[in-house]
Design a protein around this nucleic acid. Sequence first.
DNA 1: CAGTATCCACAATGATACTG
DNA 2: CAGTATCATTGTGGATACTG
Lengths: 137, 137
Amino acid sequence: METIIDNEAVVKKDFSEDLSPYLVTKCPVTLTNLIIGGKWKPVIIHNVSRGIIRFGEMQRAMPGVSKKMLTQELRDLERNGILNRKIFAQIPPRVEYSLTALGQATLPILYSMAMWGLEYAKQLGVENWATETPKST
Amino acid sequence: METIIDNEAVVKKDFSEDLSPYLVTKCPVTLTNLIIGGKWKPVIIHNVSRGIIRFGEMQRAMPGVSKKMLTQELRDLERNGILNRKIFAQIPPRVEYSLTALGQATLPILYSMAMWGLEYAKQLGVENWATETPKST
DNA sequence: CAGTATCCACAATGATACTG
DNA sequence: CAGTATCATTGTGGATACTG
């Protein structure tokens, strides 16, 4: 267990995220959206919470995501204090992600979103719609 | 009260939203994000819920939003069964928005997001950060 | 008042190749 | 394995002008 870096509970203030929409409106929902919203971040958080904690398995668990996007979103979440990133000094490299306390605290949000989404899909019968599988790296 | 159109409880299946991300992953959180996620939709829903129901007042209540974006987001929400749009046949025109049952059901999500956002802002002292006010029509 | 329509800048993402 | 770097492409949203 040769941990090199572990940013446990360290929230850095050099956000890459542009928080100006929140700073203008002071709307806390907007802030939450900026930190954990978007196409991939909720899925990443959910995956880490259920034990998918390495880069490779995460990519396999997320159809349609590219390395570039996944890296970018993981970095955002780390920088904003949602994820910890643990690097093991070995070859081949090994990295493991985990949720910070702030990250854990988002799970109820994801849960209520999931409940609503299921109900919505049921009412619309969206589950039965067809589509083509996309490619992507 | 000369109502012309009222799409009460009518969810149309010609989504403009591209639901393919959901159709690929079957992730209900992703679906919820597609329907009520993004920069403006949660704010619109919140505003309607607290009585801001006309186009003009909504735009005034949302610093930084353009007519184009506001119109687009309102149409999305209407088409996806979150909002009703009531048009009064008078000059000057008058339009009023209201939440459908599905729309009402999203309020707990917004609430939990707001709670998390407040806690996040408190922990980081984000409230005190400075910014310049943007222009926009 | 409550929108449309058009044009366009640039932000966001994809594809591909390379690396410690 | 877990990324970076670069270029190409797409998408998103802003500015502006017009309308019933």
